[in-house]
Amino acid sequence: MKNQYQRFVLTRAGQAVVVVLLAYVLTFLVISVLPGDSITNSLRDPQRGLSEEEIQRIVAFYGLDKPVVVQLVLSLGRFLSGDLGFSLQSNLPVAQLIGDALPSTLALASSALALAVIFAVAIAYGAHYLPGKWASLLRSVPSLFLSVPNFVIGLVLIELFAFRLHAFTTIDTNSAAATVFAAVTLAIPVSAPLAEVFIASLDHESRQEYAVVARSRGLSEARLFVQHLAKPSALPAVAMVALIVGELLGGAVITETIFGRDGIGTLVQKAVTGEDQPVLQAVVSLSAIVFVAVNLVADLASPLVDPRIELREVVDA
């Protein structure tokens, strides 16, 4: 068992590295086939006032005069050695730009994730145990959450809580109160699929014979939920959390823009408008790493959480 688990970890970790590398290559190719030579375009922007000589130096430094495949290999080599290059817009190291923006986004995303899980559990529990009318009302909440775009939620929250109730100000956008409301905005659409999965698996598990048997022994409904149903119905939801991280990253871009927060989202937005290739390449690769890492953790955890998962090659029975 121990050895099998080690082998499982190594295989999955290897696969994760391959996925990250592929994501890097794919990003690089997509950016390079985009119409126009984005780098030289932005370098030759008259507003930047670079002399032809300086431009040639930069082009030579990045190997931009070489074929795409060679550029890819060079760029990948720098990426692997930890060198993310310099922003074309600000001339600052990309690593520094990301380092400045990351903490704010991490705070937003992780509090949003925590809120989304709390919302989902509350909705699912209520949908299951409240009396009929309230339960069916709660069951329609996830589709409501899904159908309202997250910028609308954000604007409503700002209008209501910042302008009318003065619960937070839109000036100090990184204050704790502002972060909470930004996190709520981001959490609401993200919690919807989570709640749906949780409701469905709770329905399924509570119909299982073992739940009936546990009830026949005199367990109260609350203890039945905590001791028997919560864990097995959480297993599919945990897998879902890993997928949702992607949505969190995407949603963070919009939420940061609405709330005027500095973060990865605003960094990406500026990089796209300014065709800042090194920044884009680094952020996309970073997102890929985060996404793959979270899924890797979920994968590695599942055999530890669910004893029924056996690690062995598929055999014909």
């Binding site: 048997v213 026949s216 022994r217 005199g218 097995p232």
Partner: peptide
């Protein structure tokens, strides 16, 4: 509820599904 289990026991049909699989 106090009668459940204590006075009235229940043995189900399929033992394979009558116990919580993750405990």
């Amino acid at each position: 509820r106090p009668l459940r289990g204590r006075r009235l026991g229940y043995i189900p049909q399929d033992p394979g599904s009558a116990l919580n699989p993750v405990r």
